[in-house]
């Protein structure tokens, strides 16, 4: 199987702080791979580097066979690489539905001439997108709130919007930075199922940063562990539980007993 993502010896420094210090790992096409590690390990920084928001000082990132290390953020997204944020970043002054509509690329009404002089065509397109967006909102439990301003959603609802919006972009690969943080336990399970279903039905690859190991256990086929800016280990969660370094750095005895028992 080929890799959809290859991170190769990436370094990122913020001033003197080496947030990522020579990290390499791969994500196999069509899989959901987890990226776990203690707070401050560099996971969000890694997501940012892959998406292009954080510039890397050395190393390379390959997506779908192309070296994207020097591509600007928006071109990486155009290649089909879409990320979500650990702290929700909704378009607050727009409705929930509009938050989804805006992210779909290739709408004819994005050109000025079509926008102003051929509104019919673009309206028809938008109507189809509305139906599609409503489906997605329904999946993530936001359908009733579709006409609410995004800024009025609760913290947990904003997490759901963050996910829905990313799905609306129809990416080849999703980079999810703790999508379940702040979501109720019952809903976490449902969201996990949705992600798995999405992955199975569309073959969308995902890199999932997540502290909830039950979710990781359920939906991720492989796990990459990061600590202090480096890849500490890689494998299935079961394998990692036998790994002394990983247990010491992250899993801890408690987690081991609860999940592994």
């Amino acid at each position: 199987m080929s890799n959809v993502l290859e991170v190769n010896d990436v370094h990122v420094a913020f001033g003197g702080l080496k947030a990522i210090d020579g990290c390499s790992f791969t994500v196999e096409k069509g899989t959901i791979t987890a990226l776990i590690g203690p707070n401050g390990a560099g996971k969000s920084t890694m997501v940012g580097s892959i998406a292009g928001a954080v510039s890397i000082s050395s190393g390379s990132i390959t997506f779908d066979g192309n070296n994207i290390s020097s591509l600007p953020t928006y071109k990486r997204a155009q290649e089909g690489l879409i990320r979500t944020y650990q702290i929700s970043r909704e378009f607050g002054g727009m409705s929930v539905l509009e938050n989804l509509l805006v992210v779909r690329l290739g709408q004819s009404g994005e050109s000025l001439i079509n926008a102003v002089f051929r509104p019919k065509k673009s309206k028809a397109e938008t109507n189809e997108l509305v139906a599609e967006a409503n489906d997605i909102l329904n999946t993530f439990g936001l359908y009733r709130l579709r006409n609410e301003y995004a800024s009025n959603l609760s913290g947990g609802q904003k997490r759901l919007l963050e996910l829905s919006r990313a799905v609306m972009a129809k990416p080849k690969m999703l980079l999810l930075d703790e999508p379940m943080a702040g979501v109720t336990p019952a809903l976490i399970e449902i969201l996990g199922e949705h992600l798995l279903e999405l992955n199975r039905s569309t073959g969308m690859s995902m890199l999932l940063v997540e502290h909830n190991l039950e979710v990781v256990d359920k939906i991720c086929s492989r796990v990459v562990v990061m600590a202090v800016g480096k890849r500490l280990a890689e494998g299935t969660l079961g394998e990692l539980r036998q790994n002394r370094d990983v247990v010491e750095a992250y899993l801890g005895g408690e987690v081991h007993e609860r999940v592994g028992g």
């Binding site: 998406a51 292009g52 928001a53 953020t73 928006y74 071109k75 997204a77 155009q78 879409i82 990320r83 944020y85 970043r89 909704e90 378009f91 607050g92 002054g93 727009m94 509009e98 938050n99 509509l101 805006v102 992210v103 690329l105 709408q107 004819s108 009404g109 994005e110 050109s111 000025l112 079509n114 926008a115 102003v116 002089f117 509104p119 673009s122 397109e125 938008t126 919006r165 972009a169």
Partner: peptide, 30 residues
Amino acid sequence: FANQLYSSPLGRSMRAIREDQDVVDAFGKN
């Protein structure tokens, strides 16, 4: 003209940029 622009996908992109330019960037718009 301004109204046509406002309700179009282009106008929507503009408003999204007003809300959070980085995110619009991360969704592939120039």
